[in-house]
Design a protein around this nucleic acid. Structure first.
Lengths: 150, 150
DNA sequence: ATGATTGCAAATCTTTTGCAGGCCA
DNA sequence: TGGCCTGCAAAAGATTTGCAATCAT
């Protein structure tokens, strides 16, 4: 069974109605490799459902969020969503600045950190940004073109 | 010369007019130990300038931001501002969840990190959240009271 | 005197909410 | 059928902008 159907079933068991729209939304996240803005979600969904309204997108994002199916992170560009990570292994992410694909980083810096004394640690945030191997070449070509080399 | 006057002079040299309001705003950041929301700034300033309008706060925050006097970070609760850090030493922060005071962490985890191959690193974000020594006791007392012990 | 700064009002943008009709189970 | 979902409209919160009056230099 694919990720989409598994999640849809999980939603059904919680008593939620499975509409075509919700199925498409789940599939969008199941297939996406990176973070999505509400606007990204709306734009994608709107192709299939021309009458779609923005508030329904927000409402369904909240539903998926409350069920723990997706997670929310605040970036400079705004709030973004992605499929919830498997939490069985604590990990962090590399995030591609071009395609927003994320790659896990298995090691966590916290154990090695020398934090100021007397501070009671509750949580931490660690993210690395850059260009993934797929996008690095594209970025270099773009930069070269800006400098006049076609 | 205090931080406030030094910054004000720096603004004056850029051709900016020094109003009482701007001087107070600079002093607010020079004295603050943590991050401030635009609303925090407004509330503080509004005590001294009852006629203050929100747009002026935003405008002056942007002025200070463009001059590099303050810096902006996006948190869950929204965009916050603080006096710009001395960048001569790359460092990260511990941020108190109660009073929002920040303490520097001198060591940076990046050199030790084993990042997925082929990724071209551009920047990273690392923050540790918890309770500072001043607030830890207060937090414990509050938790104890919630459990019925006055 | 001149131009930057401010307050006011209104416009944007993002996100949320009330309501009535439509659809899933 | 019953109640959840949806679209519409409007509200709410955050931030920006145009304009005329005011203030720093």
């Amino acid at each position: 069974m694919g990720d989409t159907e598994r999640i849809v079933q999980q939603m059904s068991e919680k008593g939620l109605r499975i509409t075509d729209q919700r199925r498409t939304l789940v599939k969008l996240f199941a297939d996406a490799s990176g973070y999505l803005l509400p606007k990204d979600v709306y734009d994608h969904m709107q192709r299939t459902y021309p009458g779609l309204s923005f508030d329904t997108v927000y409402r369904n994002l909240r539903v998926l969020l409350d069920l723990g199916i997706i997670e929310q992170i605040v970036f400079e560009e705004g709030v973004k969503f992605k499929l919830h990570c498997d939490e069985s292994h604590h990990h962090h992410h590399m995030i591609c600045l071009h395609c927003e694909k994320t790659l896990p980083i298995r090691s966590c810096p916290m154990p090695e950190m020398d934090v100021p004394g007397g501070f009671q640690i509750v949580k931490h945030r660690f993210e690395v940004y850059g260009y993934c191997s797929d996008c690095r070449d594209a970025a270099e070509h773009a930069a070269a073109e800006e400098n006049g080399r076609p």
